[in-house]
Simulated scan of single mutants.
Amino acid sequence: MTTKYRIKDLPKDERPREKLVKKGANALKLEELLAILLRTGTKTKNVLKLAEDIVSKYNKNRLKNISFEELRNIYGVGPTKAVQILAAIELGERLFKPKEEKEIYIHSPKDVLKETSHLKENKKENFVVLYLDARNKLIAKETVSIGTINASLIHPREVFEPAIRELAVQIILVHNHPSGDPEPSEDDLAMTKRLVETGKILGIDVIDHIIIAKSKFFSFKERGLI
């Protein structure tokens, strides 16, 4: 049976737990805190090296928004460790989040409409993109274009640059039809297809495109078009 390298296999002055007890949690590096949660390494690397590799692969913002599936894909992180890490991240978020900060989660077209209700009465077409993390939390909202919207005018770079900058893993496209008819035009269909394909290449999912009219809306996802 293969024995995993554990924290207690490290020299005493390098053990994160002992360091935390002696100097306090603030004295520990991010990888040392992560090593305490991981507890054991793999057959080829001790737990501190495993934690260092994870931190080097995912910067602080990406680690904060990491998903269960991403953690499970890391060699040496099983489902139990993945759950413990996610629980610790969420605990820290809730304890130290400023009280005035309101988190917004997008789970349905109704949630999207709440965040883009101003588009209903707009007399010009506006193209807005909602940027979400792996847990569907809204992390950014950008107006990409104002005026006539067609497939040739909406460039994928303008849509996906903020996603890369904000470390979003999924996006929702939103635009309005001042005419009052939310049915997609040929340009809407072509533009959506182009952006979905670009998202697949970049690893950023386009999970819906919602067209808003005065009293109605059209969801590409609900109609099976995405």
Rank of each mutant, 00 (worst) to 15 (best):
M1K: 11
K8D: 11
K12C: 06
D13W: 14
D13H: 15
D13F: 15
R17Y: 05
R17M: 02
E18K: 15
K19C: 08
K19F: 09
L20K: 15
K23P: 04
G24L: 07
N26P: 05
L28A: 00
L28D: 00
E32I: 04
E32C: 05
A35V: 02
A35E: 02
L38G: 07
L38W: 09
T44K: 14
K45D: 09
K45Q: 15
N46K: 12
V47T: 15
L48W: 03
L48N: 03
K49W: 04
L50K: 02
A51K: 03
I54H: 00
V55G: 01
V55E: 00
S56P: 00
K57G: 01
L63Y: 07
L63M: 08
K64R: 13
E69W: 03
R72G: 07
R72Q: 10
Y75F: 13
P79H: 00
T80I: 12
T80M: 06
A82C: 04
I85R: 12
A87C: 04
A88P: 00
I89F: 07
L91F: 14
E100W: 12
Y105E: 13
H107I: 03
K110Q: 13
T116S: 07
S117Y: 09
N126F: 09
N126R: 11
F127Y: 15
L132D: 08
D133G: 06
D133Y: 08
K137P: 11
L138V: 10
I139S: 14
G147Q: 06
P156G: 00
V159N: 11
F160R: 06
L167G: 09
L167V: 13
H175E: 01
P178N: 08
D181H: 06
S185T: 15
E186H: 08
D187S: 11
M191Q: 03
K193C: 01
T198Y: 09
T198M: 08
D205Y: 13
I207D: 07
I210L: 14
I210T: 09
I212S: 05
I212V: 14
E222N: 13
R223E: 15
G224D: 11
